[in-house]
Amino acid sequence: MVSYTTAPGDVEMGVEPRTVVLVEKKSSTGWTWKVLGALFITVLCLGGVLLFAWYWDGRQESMMETRTEALRGEDTAEKKGPHDTLRQFSTKAKAAIHLEGSYDDEDETATLEWKTGQGQAFAQGGFQLVDNMIVIPQTGLYFVYSQASFRVSCSDGDEQGAGRHLTPLSHRIWRYSDSVGTKAALMSAVRSACQQAAQDDNDRVEHGWYNAIYLGAVFQLNEGDKLWAETNQLSELETDDGKTFFGVFSL
């Protein structure tokens, strides 16, 4: 800032106007802070631009790698074919088997057979049905279960309507292990049918006594162990879908 003022001259020399110029001294410290602030802002902007460029390049590279892996997976799937792909999925699935019971009541020598190709039956994860026995694929914990359904006629054909009493129904799961060398009962249950049949209970005498035996528990089984289920009173056994079954699944 500049200002002007007039001072009187020497008395002897007479009055002569003088002009004095006052100059305001500007501080250099303010300019220094302004310069440093401008540099700091410039550095921040430049850093932000570099950081954004680095992030964008990394994202583009990651997207390219993902696309490359996807293309490789598609090429591999095309080379392997659908059967190999399904085989790969099946190896990752939990091991399980579910069988439906079948019995030919017209054959007097027939036994209870377990089927994989009827009803809701299936097998996966290495389970096999060999000689009517389930073969355990590998050592581990398994849940074993089975059910046998019966329809027992409580009438003995007597004209007086006298019913059969205490007809035994049994269902059992057997296990054979190479470590033991012999078969052993894994689970079993016994029930009695017609124990409450009365002469005046015509409906029960004519249509039969319905009952089911269910078995289920967890066991530590070894690779190669064989399991099978047997029941008595095969002539009274019901083998419609979902009534008599046998299964195992890994835990």
Rank of each mutant, 00 (worst) to 15 (best):
S3C: 10
T5Y: 00
T6Q: 01
A7I: 13
V11L: 07
V11K: 06
V15R: 11
T19S: 11
T19Q: 07
V21K: 07
L22Q: 07
W33R: 11
K34Y: 14
G37F: 10
I41S: 04
L50C: 10
L51C: 12
W56I: 04
T68G: 06
E69I: 13
A70Q: 15
G73T: 15
G73K: 15
E74I: 09
D75V: 05
D75T: 08
T76R: 14
A77G: 09
E78S: 04
K79R: 15
K80Q: 04
R87E: 12
F89P: 03
F89T: 05
F89M: 12
S90K: 02
K92L: 12
K94S: 11
H98E: 05
E100H: 06
D105T: 12
Q120K: 11
A121L: 07
F122W: 05
Q124P: 00
Q128N: 06
V130L: 05
I134C: 03
V135A: 13
P137F: 00
Q138Y: 10
Y142C: 03
Y142N: 02
V144N: 08
Y145E: 01
Q147P: 02
A148M: 04
S149Q: 05
F150W: 14
R151Y: 00
R151F: 01
Q160N: 03
Q160D: 13
G161K: 08
A162T: 15
G163E: 08
P168Y: 10
H171A: 14
H171C: 04
R172S: 05
W174F: 09
V180C: 03
V180R: 09
V180Y: 00
S188M: 04
V190Y: 07
S192N: 11
C194T: 10
Q195D: 13
D200M: 11
R204K: 14
V205M: 15
G208M: 03
G208W: 05
N211Y: 09
Y214T: 15
G216H: 08
A217L: 02
F219E: 01
F219I: 00
L221N: 05
E223H: 01
W228E: 01
W228M: 02
A229D: 14
L234F: 00
S235F: 04
E238T: 09
D240R: 12
D241E: 15
D241C: 04
F249S: 03
L251R: 12
